[in-house]
């Protein structure tokens, strides 16, 4: 038997903080004429390898009826990551997710009993995406839904601050939402509103063999009412549930796996089919 598995959270926090820092440093590097890394969360260029927000590519397709190879390749790579690893973008890379989790951790003590609402779950996000894409197609051929991208506002505010030495007023929506989530004690943006998470969540739920949290009932040692895994999930999901709507919302953060580590270790990350 191997020793107890390492805690996942320190690795994840390092990745999240690293990405948040990266998007603050990249504009400064650009100004020093280092452009191997450039762009923001709508399109990012890593020494010629493109990465794109799949939703912004879809909006360009709906508005201009044509997309470039670079955009398709960038969106393809982002979706491929989700296909294999689940929507890890949301929990490991997204700066809004990072700050939202921190705000939730600080505010959680005051708002107890945050549970997942089944009625308004993934459907509200899907509705926003459909209405937005229809609006782009019919009335306003501009990437409207990019205005709702919180990582987009974060990276654009950084570019703005470095390139033009001024604050981007529209980006104030980012701290405003964080404050609202802190006060309400619920991560409602990621759960119910964020349109950028829809495509990667759908791609991230497609393959049964993807990396995901697996629950083995035999190892679970917790009595029924006591659920440390559920209490730990910042999105209020039940990691033991097989419900599809909950599966769509899970972003593979691994907090439940960490919570289960000292108990029965019934929750584990793995690839492949269920045993």
């Amino acid at each position: 038997m191997k020793g107890p598995p390492l805690s996942i959270r320190p690795f994840r926090r390092t990745a999240q903080a690293g990405v948040a820092l990266l998007f603050a440093v990249v504009p400064a590097l650009n100004r020093m004429e280092i452009t191997a890394l450039s762009g923001n969360f709508f399109f990012f260029n890593i020494a010629g390898i493109p990465l794109a927000d799949p939703l912004s590519v879809l909006q360009v397709a709906a508005g201009a009826f044509s997309v470039t190879t670079a955009m398709c390749a960038g969106a393809g790579l982002a979706l491929l990551l989700a296909l294999l690893m689940g929507p890890v973008f949301c929990s490991w890379l997204c700066p809004y997710g990072f700050f939202s989790e921190l705000a939730h951790a600080l505010g959680a003590k005051r708002a107890s009993g945050t549970t997942f609402s089944r009625s308004a779950s993934f459907a509200s996000k899907l509705l926003i995406v459909c209405v937005g894409l229809l609006a782009v197609f019919l009335f306003a051929p501009v990437p409207l839904l990019n205005q709702l991208s919180m990582p987009g506002w974060y990276s654009r505010a950084m570019q703005h601050a470095v390139f033009y030495r001024e604050a981007l007023a529209c980006a104030l929506i980012f701290p405003a939402l964080l404050a609202a989530e802190f006060l309400s004690g619920r991560r409602f943006w990621c759960l119910y509103l964020c349109p950028q998470s829809v495509l990667i969540s759908l791609a991230g739920a497609l393959l049964p063999g993807r990396l995901r949290v697996r629950f083995s009932g035999r190892s679970c040692t917790c009595a029924k009412p006591e659920r440390p895994c559920r209490a730990r999930c910042s999105l209020g999901l039940d990691p033991r549930s097989a419900d599809l709507r909950q599966r769509l919302q899970c972003s593979n953060c691994g907090d439940c796996v960490d919570a289960c580590r000292k108990n029965g270790r019934a929750l584990r990350f793995s690839f492949g089919r269920d045993a």
Partner: peptide, 22 residues
């Protein structure tokens, strides 16, 4: 319809003349 405001053009501009202002 095509611009996604990625700012790559502003990042390569030698003279910092491209502004991505709202």
């Amino acid at each position: 319809a095509r611009c996604v405001s990625c700012g790559l053009c502003a990042a390569v501009c030698n003279y910092a003349c491209i502004e991505m202002t709202p």
